[in-house]
Design a protein around this nucleic acid. Sequence first.
DNA 1: CTATGTGCAAAAACTTTGCACGTAC
DNA 2: GTACGTGCAAAGTTTTTGCACATAG
Lengths: 166, 166
Amino acid sequence: MPQTRSDDLAPLSVSGTPEEKFREFLEIRGEKLTEPRRVLVRHIFSSHKHFDADELVRDLHEAGHAISRATVYRTLRLLVEAGLLRELRLTNRSAYEHDYGYPAHDHMHCTVCNRVIEFRNEDIRQTRDAISRAHGFRPSGHRFVIEGVCSECSRAHTPRRRLDLI
Amino acid sequence: MPQTRSDDLAPLSVSGTPEEKFREFLEIRGEKLTEPRRVLVRHIFSSHKHFDADELVRDLHEAGHAISRATVYRTLRLLVEAGLLRELRLTNRSAYEHDYGYPAHDHMHCTVCNRVIEFRNEDIRQTRDAISRAHGFRPSGHRFVIEGVCSECSRAHTPRRRLDLI
DNA sequence: CTATGTGCAAAAACTTTGCACGTAC
DNA sequence: GTACGTGCAAAGTTTTTGCACATAG
């Protein structure tokens, strides 16, 4: 029973850790891998897959890392640029998920309990590329979100409350 | 040459105006169709298709309608609930587009000039429904956005600047 | 008449920025 | 040593809310 991912989505083994990939990215741009950045990457890639800036700050502080909100926002942007994170924008608050060493996938978003369910489907990318080609558009990615009501909420009289977790 | 819509996307003739549909919606909920709401619906459905809250307020004020920002936000939410508008969320600021009397379609988003290009594709809905069925998910809609670089920006040395229009 | 909506201004929610100090390379 | 990053607090953006007054039904 899929919760936030289906069970066949085993991580790919990719060369290098997220931290290494981030260092490479920064090196190319002449920027630095600092302690706060290292802590952030490690934390993000050693834990849950969906989060927002606020949760991340709270988690870090609870774990004893006094990393400022500003640095979190700045680093999240870098990680998206580096291709390590994906920005979701399901609501007006940005949510992030791993985008490295993890197969491409899309999402169903339950508008009752706010849960995010992942799925993989091969057709979507092909459709995307065909459409792009027809319009002379150079695709760099896509977002496919099915909005609706998840099976639990369709059934349940007491659905999980909204915003439990994204 | 598609700009914000392809030329085969002629509006359906639908029974009733957006204003009428909104009134029905409000009636069912025991709410009122007031003058500001009427002005808003008329304005929105007699003009451009993509806009955000801020543009809308400016437009209205320029047209001499002194409708408050709060009312605009409140009414936009109602119109989305009523199925008359669709919320896009391409950036952290919500954008809206007509979703009534206009065939379903999806979007390409140029990350260079921020332009939105519409397209229609039959496969997407079928894929969406098949995936939903397989997960016991009841779809109410979807968002499919292809991110990338539009043909003009791929070609041009001086692309349209970002935020020209959404 | 009365439940609902509006405008205003204030607050909340989210994100970015400026600057003095600190640190990776 | 120097260019780049950090934390802090302040400001910027976008959206929501509380409340006194207005109005649709």
